[in-house]
Design a protein around this nucleic acid. Structure first.
Lengths: 340, 340
DNA sequence: CTGAAAGCGCTAACAA
DNA sequence: TTGTTAGCGCTTTCAG
C-alpha cells in the first residue's frame, strides 16, 4: 500500500499493446520514421492519444547516449550584462532543440567544480562556462574530456577550448583615452577582483593608456559586496591632489560609486568625472548621464551558443576557435562631454 | 569507423571488474550504503578513482524514477524582479540537491505549454510556474497530473495548486492612497497587459482607491515592448486637465515613463508625480528619486521553492497551500514627499 | 514493413 | 556481507 499514490504513466509498451503492434513499430512511429504502414501508424497514434502517452526522455537519453541538454555555468545573473548573455544563449540553444541548464558558481572555484561535475554526470552534450573561480585546474581534469566546452567571457588556460571574449584591454584603453582627451591627468581606476581575466586586461588597458600619456597610474581593487566604494572615494578626496576622474572596471563598481558620490553630494562630472564598463540601467537618466563602455552581450551569447552547437554536431574535431568582440563607447555626460 | 571519436566513459561494471567485486557491491559503495566490508569499499573506491569513474545520473534516474530536477517556467528574467526570484528559487533548490531547469515562456501560452510538456517528458520531479500566457487551459490537461506544481506570482485557475503570491490589490490601493494623501485628484494609471492576474488585481486596487475617494479613474493599458509610454503621456498632457500623478503598474512601464518624462523635460514630481510597482535599479539616484512598491522577490522565491520541496517529499497529498506576501512602500520623492 | 530481443548504466530484490 | 538477476522505458539491430 506504499506507492498507491500516483499511478504510473503509460509507456510505449502500453501504446503498442493497445494498438496491437510490436513495440518496435510503436517506437518507429514515435520517431516519425518512414518505413511504417499507414495502417500501423494511424493505430499507434490513436493509441498514443487515447492513453495520453508522453515519451520518457530520460529513457531515450540513456539509450542514445546524449541528453540533448547543455549546461551553462555563470557566476550569477544579477547584473544586466550576464542576464542578457544568458538570455541570448538560451534562445539559440532552444532553437536548436537543446535544453539549457543554468548553474551558478558565485565566482567560487569549488562551487564551479561541483556544478561542472554534476552537469557532466547528467550527461550534458556540451557546456558553456564562465570560468570565474581563481583556481582553474579542474579544467584539466579528465572528467571534462569528451564534453565540448566553450569558454565565455573569460578564456580557459591550458587545453585549447573554444572561447568567446570581448576586447577588454583595447576597450579600457579607449575609455581612459577618452578621459585623457577631456584633459584629465589624475585618473583613478576602481574595480573588483573576482573575474580575473577580464579585469586584468581592463587594468592592463588602463595602465597602458596612462603610461603612454606619461601619467602616474592610480589603481584600487576592492572586495565585492562590501560596498567599499565610499571608503576609497573618501581616501581619494583627502589627498592633496585628488583624482579628477574615475575609470570604473565594471557595473558593480559604477553603481556603488554612483551611490557614494550621490551620498557625498559630489558633483559629476565637474568635481569628478566617471566612465566605466557596462551600461547601467537608467544610467542615461541620472542627473549626470553616465558614459560607459557597452559590451555586446547579446552577440556574445549568440556566438557562444552557435559555436557550441556547431561543435556538438561536428563529428570530427575542428581546431578550437576564439572569437573576440568589439565594445562600444556610449558617450554621455559623466565623462565631461557636453559640459563645456 | 563511425564512432571512433570519443571513447566511452567507464561504467559501474568496469569499476566492479577492476575491484574484483560484484556490480551490486560497487553500487552499494557508490551510494554510501552501510552493509559493505571495509575491504570491498576500499578496493571499489580505488577502482573508481583509478578509472575516473563518474556515475551516470541518467541511468540512475531511469531506474529510480525521479530525475532530481525541477523545472522553472517564467516569462523571462530581464527585469530585476524575476531575476531575483529565480535566483532565490535556484538557491533553495540546490540546497536540497535538486537541479533547477529554467525555461522561458515569453508570456506566450503556446510556448508555455511546450515548455511544460518538455519538462514533463524529462521527468521533472516538480514544477514552479509563472502562468503568464492568456490561455491556461493546459493546466487542466492530464499530462501534468502526478507532477507537483507551485504557481508563482500568479495563481492557476482550476485544479488546486499550491501558490505563492503577493498582495497586489492591497498594495496598489496603498500606493494610490499615498498619492491621494499628497492631494492628487487626477491620478492616471498605466500598465501593460501581459501578466493578467497580477495586473488585474493591481488595477482593482487602483480602482477601489479612486472610487473610495470619489474620483474618476483614468486607466490606460499599453502593449509591451512598443515603448508607447510617450504617446500616452502626450495624450494626457493635451487634455484640459491632465493628470497630476501617474500610478505605474510595473517596472517596464515605470522605466518607459521615466524616459518619456525626461525626453519631454517634464518635471517630477511637480508637474507629474510618479509611483509604481517594482523598485527600479538606480531609482534612488534619479534627479527625482523614485517612490515605489517593492515586492519581496527573494522571499517569494524562497517560499515557493520550499513549498515545492515539501510537496515533492510528501508521500501523501496535503491540502494545497496558498501564501500571500506583503509588499513594502519605498517612499522617496517622485510621489511628492519631501518637496514641501 | 514489422516483431522479437538485446541492451544503455544503474538500483533493488533475492539468494547465497 | 555479497553476487546474481531482473528490470526502468526506450532504440536498434536482426530476422522474418
Amino acid at each position: 500500500m506504499k506507492d498507491s499514490g500516483r499511478k504510473k504513466p503509460p509507456t510505449l509498451v502500453h501504446v503498442a499493446r493497445l494498438a496491437g503492434v510490436g513495440i518496435g513499430t510503436a517506437s518507429r512511429v514515435l520517431n516519425g520514421e518512414s518505413h511504417v504502414s499507414q495502417q500501423a501508424a494511424a493505430r499507434v497514434q490513436a493509441a498514443m492519444k487515447q492513453l495520453g502517452y508522453k515519451p520518457n526522455e530520460v529513457a531515450r537519453n540513456l539509450k542514445v547516449r546524449r541528453s540533448g541538454a547543455v549546461g551553462i555555468v555563470v557566476p550569477d545573473i544579477g547584473g544586466p550584462f550576464m542576464a542578457a548573455c544568458v538570455h541570448a544563449i538560451h534562445e539559440v540553444l532552444r532553437n536548436h532543440h537543446y535544453v539549457p541548464i543554468l548553474a551558478f558558481s558565485h565566482g567560487d572555484s569549488q562551487t564551479e567544480r561541483n556544478e561542472l561535475d554534476y552537469l557532466v554526470r547528467r550527461q550534458m552534450d556540451g557546456l558553456i562556462v564562465v570560468p570565474s573561480g581563481l583556481d582553474r585546474s579542474h579544467y584539466r581534469e579528465p572528467f571534462l574530456e569528451g564534453t565540448p566546452i566553450v569558454a565565455f567571457d573569460q578564456p580557459i588556460p591550458g587545453r585549447a577550448f573554444d572561447a568567446v571574449l570581448v576586447k577588454n584591454k583595447e576597450s579600457a584603453r579607449m575609455g581612459v583615452e577618452h578621459l585623457l582627451g577631456h584633459g584629465h591627468r589624475r585618473i583613478a581606476c576602481l574595480g573588483v577582483f573576482r573575474h580575473a581575466y577580464t579585469i586584468k586586461n581592463r587594468i592592463r588597458g588602463y595602465l597602458e593608456a596612462m603610461e603612454t600619456a606619461g601619467l602616474e597610474p592610480d589603481l584600487t581593487i576592492m572586495e565585492p559586496g562590501k560596498n567599499q566604494a565610499g571608503t576609497h572615494l573618501d581616501a581619494w578626496l583627502r589627498r592633496a591632489d585628488p583624482p579628477t576622474a574615475i575609470f570604473s572596471l565594471n557595473e558593480l563598481t559604477s553603481v556603488e560609486l554612483l551611490h557614494a558620490l550621490a551620498a557625498r553630494k559630489i558633483s559629476m562630472p565637474d568635481t569628478i568625472a566617471l566612465l566605466g564598463f557596462d551600461d547601467v540601467q537608467l544610467g542615461e537618466l541620472l542627473p549626470c548621464p553616465l558614459t560607459s563602455i557597452r559590451q555586446p552581450s547579446h552577440q556574445l551569447g549568440t556566438q557562444a551558443a552557435n559555436l557550441l552547437v556547431e561543435r556538438m554536431s561536428a563529428n570530427g574535431d575542428t581546431a578550437s576557435r576564439r572569437l573576440v568582440l568589439d565594445t562600444e563607447l556610449i558617450v554621455r555626460k559623466s565623462c565631461g562631454c557636453g559640459t563645456a
